[in-house]
Computed example of a mutant assay.
Amino acid sequence: MTRRFPRRSTSPAITLSADIVDRLHGLLPRVGEDVVAAIIAEVPSYQDALAGPMGGTIRTAVGVALGGFLSIASGQGAESVPATPEALEGAYELGRGEARSGRTTEALLAAYRIGARVAWRELSSEAVAAGLPPEALVEFAALVFAWIDEVSDASVAGHGDELATTGRVRQRLLERLVRQLLNGATTEVLDDAVERAGWPPPTTLTAALVPPSQVSSVLALVSQDTLVLEDQSAADDATLLFVPDAHGHSRAVLLRTVEGRGAVVGPAKPWREARTSYDRAVRVREAGWGEDTEAHLVPLVLGADPEARADLRASVLAPLSELRPATAEKLTETLRCWLLHHGRRDDVAAALFVHPQTVRYRMGQLRELYGDLLDDPETVLALTVALG
């Protein structure tokens, strides 16, 4: 496929004679090897890279680039300078390969600068020896370095495109991993998804539901391995983040990070059980209870099955069912305070804003209605849960 690249003007100010071009063509294999050797010596990230298959690719790219340069310099490609398809395509693919190898554009451009220096030194010496007038060296230098700029631009474009493509692919794999976590996938499926995405599994994951407008600022302050899913319908208009290893002291840091941002943070759970953290965060967010789900464990437990709790409440309050509603309400609240304050009469009175004698009277009524059941541990537990 032919690609279009941003162009620099490389129309030659000079045209090399056929004799000079022939001499330079014969020099190209040696120049290519010298360029590669100089890159190995001067750019640390290339010291081991040029020995294997990638080394062959780079040597080929150098040869194609130099050959394309001579084609331009000889005037053969003067009308088609903006195309130079072989050299530019080779440089583009070289940039993509360098991105896949993990090398930066800085390293890539350093290699080009070194290559330009070596190529200019050797080609200019040979060109002069072959009859190029010394006064033409300035134009020759401009042609060499303009050509290097051209092919390096193509390589940078390839490097950027590869990173963008790789990033999109990895993001899709990470989103798939999040969905598998939410859907309760098996250990084998999750481990395979982790390997495919190249994601380092942590000890725990913590769900955070964050308003979309706050996601970027939160992501800037948490682990770069945080998983993100934007379109999880159960979270309404919130974006789901799964933050790695935000347990122990790190939880306080995460809570400070989201403070005031309208987020909800679930509990830290073993990473394969992250769905539990998400579910809890959703429940607290729907209830509007605040940022930290772990500050609301009692209401979460009591509200886990509202219908069952209503049935339990009706069952344990059955002895009050024959009373007038106002009386039943007063005794119910007194019984609740009595349970919560472990029967301490003064504390119960203070909580109800009544006289301790009133508490004594009401508890007498309750003991008449419940009998020995108020001393039965199972009944006390049922009453505590129902009235908590």
Results as ranks from 00 to 15, higher is better:
residue 59 R to V: 12
residue 166 T to I: 09
residue 163 L to V: 05
residue 50 L to K: 08
residue 108 L to G: 04
residue 58 I to R: 07
residue 100 R to E: 11
residue 146 A to Y: 10
residue 105 T to Q: 09
residue 154 A to F: 03
residue 59 R to A: 08
residue 51 A to D: 14
residue 150 E to Q: 10
residue 93 E to V: 15
residue 56 G to W: 12
residue 139 E to L: 11
residue 139 E to N: 08
residue 77 G to M: 15
residue 110 A to L: 15
residue 72 I to N: 09
residue 132 L to Y: 06
residue 102 G to V: 03
residue 61 A to R: 03
residue 25 H to G: 12
residue 124 S to F: 02
residue 78 A to W: 09
residue 47 Q to H: 15
residue 160 G to V: 15
residue 131 G to T: 00
residue 43 V to A: 04
residue 62 V to N: 03
residue 32 G to Y: 01
residue 159 H to K: 01
residue 38 A to Y: 13
residue 102 G to R: 02
residue 164 A to F: 15
residue 87 A to V: 02
residue 133 P to E: 13
residue 95 G to H: 04
residue 124 S to N: 03
residue 85 P to Q: 12
residue 166 T to Q: 15
residue 110 A to T: 11
residue 53 P to S: 15
residue 54 M to A: 13
residue 89 E to Q: 08
residue 85 P to M: 06
residue 145 F to L: 15
residue 33 E to V: 07
residue 59 R to Q: 12
residue 49 A to F: 13
residue 114 I to N: 00
residue 24 L to A: 09
residue 26 G to V: 04
residue 110 A to W: 11
residue 41 A to C: 10
residue 104 T to F: 00
residue 137 L to Q: 09
residue 85 P to S: 07
residue 143 L to F: 13
residue 64 V to Q: 02
residue 167 G to F: 07
residue 129 A to L: 07
residue 158 G to S: 08
residue 70 L to P: 04
residue 115 G to Y: 05
residue 23 R to T: 10
residue 125 S to C: 14
residue 60 T to G: 15
residue 79 E to R: 15
residue 83 A to M: 12
residue 81 V to A: 06
residue 101 S to T: 10
residue 87 A to Y: 02
residue 130 A to S: 07
residue 89 E to W: 10
residue 130 A to W: 05
residue 30 R to N: 12
residue 62 V to G: 06
residue 133 P to R: 12
residue 31 V to Q: 01
